[in-house]
Computed example of a mutant assay.
Amino acid sequence: MHSTLEVSMKLKKKLEEDGQGERHALYHVLPEFLNAELMESGCQNIYRFNERERFSFFKQFVDFKGKSVLDIGCNTGYFMFSVLDEGANQITGYEGKTSCVNFIMQAKPYCSHPEKIHVLNEYYDFSNAGGTYDVCLLLNVLHHLGDDFGDDEINKDEAKKKIIEHLRFMSHNVDTLIFQMGYNWKGEHDKCLFADGTKQEMIEFLQLNLAESWEFVVIGIAERSAEGIRYCTPSENNIQRDDELREFLNRPIFILKSKKFNTTNK
């Protein structure tokens, strides 16, 4: 077996190559156990967007130790490997892109407990859960419904209804949901899901439609500080859309507790 540093260098190069022209390339980041090897060697590591900042927020409100975790749209597995480092017992990822799954499978043998990581090269079927989980990460997936997955014949209004339907369905199979979604259906700027594309519209849309299924434990809003990006609870200072942060950082994080989950089904 190659050294962890050799694998880190190889996978860093692979991410850089695969990311050229790839619309989801900003989510392609190395897991921290590989980043650590690069940093020790003095090599510039792969780190984009705000994966660390988001995960730091998750950890404030969710205890992953001993938990079964589902990651829908796991990309290159950054959060799968991160929850493993936090003591998760079993982690299952679904990812439709083969190159991302191949990346996870190459990195997996070098993590602390590879036997706890399971990844499927397919899109998650929201009509057939296939098991129950303590925690689910569903990050920036559902606004691609009708594009990357699902019925490509639906329109925008039907997609909004289907998003709510999927989230209600998940409440029967997941105890805690960490959720984030984009404003633009299929990622297209001329297909905004909300009239003004504001955080408040998204929050009200989800709270109104999910009140019977989910308790809203906390909402995280990105703020820029002298140290970088951090996620805070909503306030007068951060609830307004900040176009200087661009699209991704204007997306709230929702941590939800199911009102329908039955532990006897586990």
Rank of each mutant, 00 (worst) to 15 (best):
K191E: 00
S258P: 15
L256V: 04
F248H: 10
N238T: 06
E223P: 04
K191Q: 03
I221E: 14
E236I: 00
E215D: 15
E247P: 00
F205S: 09
L210Q: 03
L193E: 01
E227H: 15
N238G: 07
L206Y: 02
F254R: 06
Q200A: 14
S235V: 12
F254Q: 04
F205I: 11
L206N: 01
I203A: 06
L256T: 05
D196F: 15
G197T: 11
L206R: 02
K257S: 14
E204C: 01
I219W: 06
F254T: 03
Q240S: 10
E236N: 09
F205M: 07
M202H: 00
P234T: 04
I239M: 14
L210A: 02
L249T: 02
E223I: 06
Q207I: 09
I219C: 11
K191W: 10
G220M: 00
D243V: 05
P234M: 09
F254S: 08
R224V: 09
K199L: 15
Q207W: 13
L249Y: 07
E201P: 00
I229K: 08
Q207S: 12
M202N: 03
A226T: 04
F216I: 06
D243L: 13
I253L: 13
T198C: 10
K259H: 06
I219Q: 07
N250H: 07
I239D: 13
L206E: 02
I219H: 04
I239A: 13
R224F: 14
E223A: 09
P234Q: 08
E227Y: 15
E215R: 06
N250M: 11
L193N: 01
F254V: 09
G197D: 07
P234L: 14
I203Y: 02
L210F: 08
F216Y: 04
E215C: 06
R224A: 13
G197V: 14
K257D: 10
S225M: 06
P234A: 11
F194A: 11
V217L: 09
E204R: 02
P252K: 00
L245A: 07
L249G: 03
I239K: 03
G197L: 15
E227T: 11
E201I: 13
I203K: 00
R241A: 14
R241T: 13
V217D: 14
Q240G: 08
G228I: 04
E227D: 13
L245V: 07
K259E: 03
R251L: 02
R246T: 05
R230D: 01
E236Y: 08
F216V: 08
L256N: 03
K191S: 01
T198I: 12
S258R: 13
R241Y: 15
T233Y: 14
F248R: 08
F248Y: 15
E223R: 12
S235I: 06
E227A: 12
G228V: 05
Q240H: 11
S225N: 09
L210G: 00
I229W: 09
C192L: 07
L208D: 12
T198Q: 05
I203S: 02
V217Q: 10
R251V: 00
R246Y: 05
A222M: 08
L208M: 11
P252V: 00
E204F: 12
D243P: 02
E227C: 15
N209F: 09
C232G: 05
